[in-house]
Design a protein around this nucleic acid. Sequence first.
DNA 1: ATTGATACCTAACTACCGATAGGGAGCCGC
DNA 2: GCGGCTCCCTATCGGTAGTTAGGTATCAAT
Lengths: 201, 201
Amino acid sequence: MKQDPSGNPASGQRPEGGARRQILDAAAALLRQGYDATTTREIAARVGIKAGSIYHHYPSKEAIVSAVVNEGVRVVHEAVTGALAALGSSASPRERMQAAIKAHLLSSLEHSAYTSASIRAFAFLPAAVQEDCRVERRRYEEIWRGLVTEAAAAGLLAPGVSQDAVRLLLLGAVNWAGEWYRPERMSIDEIARDFAASILR
Amino acid sequence: MKQDPSGNPASGQRPEGGARRQILDAAAALLRQGYDATTTREIAARVGIKAGSIYHHYPSKEAIVSAVVNEGVRVVHEAVTGALAALGSSASPRERMQAAIKAHLLSSLEHSAYTSASIRAFAFLPAAVQEDCRVERRRYEEIWRGLVTEAAAAGLLAPGVSQDAVRLLLLGAVNWAGEWYRPERMSIDEIARDFAASILR
DNA sequence: ATTGATACCTAACTACCGATAGGGAGCCGC
DNA sequence: GCGGCTCCCTATCGGTAGTTAGGTATCAAT
């Protein structure tokens, strides 16, 4: 065999850490270019194994993609929750909103290929995969529902507009950011500040 | 032969109007589900011809998709330009902004499968196709740059925020609307009104 | 009547996809 | 040292993609 002959965990081309994790990492990186562009062969190549070997770790391509997307939502959920918790209970609704926007943008644009993939590719995933992460996405959505309600209670929203509209405006804007964001153009901090300032008064 | 035996333009399964137009229509409808989901065979089936016959009208799948996306941008460009022209010169920057938002949403959500396709699928198109419609998209973007500048001059924007941020916030929100819009949920008119009211003061 | 263009078909090619079958090497507990 | 487990391999399957070659029917103009 030409493969890694020893149990040495750090030699050759073979996966070092958990192979399952490496497969997800590769899939997440590819998913940003679309579901069909994410081939099991390319995933295997990036991990350093052969195509068929994927199926020792996961039963299907859909299972891999489902895991990636779910983790992507989980990561951004934790990022936003963590950022809000770090603010403490004395923070104003405006500060909380801006912190949430920044955390979401950081997760989807810089920190997590999983989050990036789950936002960009979601609409074109097989229906079964979309169904798999509906609950997780719904749960994340609730955070934003709460933030908008807080802002409304504090009188920070434009008069007469529905909270649904504000939430959808905001989530649309941050989710679309992956289509135009370039680090040298505008910092994530600036984007979060201007987005928050634009919709709050 | 089992095909349309006469020159009768309205009989059988054969394309009635221009076949080129029908091919684009079919491609536009399919493109909303993604580039790879848009197969030449399915396009042909919807037009009522066989797969190979596509290539009598277009040299490649990329050429078809490129034409669809370009037309999609052209359509929304005309829709917004038309809506602004219909307002007349006495309209306020706020009215103009709201009308532009409504026209964009109407085009992408109701009127044009071309526009819908060009927004949703663009990010996953082959690089060559993206390059083909860069100019057209840039041209459309200029409308929004102008609208935001007008609003800023009228003092309608939040103080201290960059015009780029406002434009990207707004375009992101309207482009993302295709991911959640349901006619029974909120009317396009309401969406346009609330979006405009949220970012203008 | 012949030509040439137009529009479409049949059949096939190559390439690549997700997935499976079966085998082999190392390792662990007994 | 022997079974059994894990991990990965090779080889291949059936399916489908974009595309092409070459043939056929129709029709307008010569």
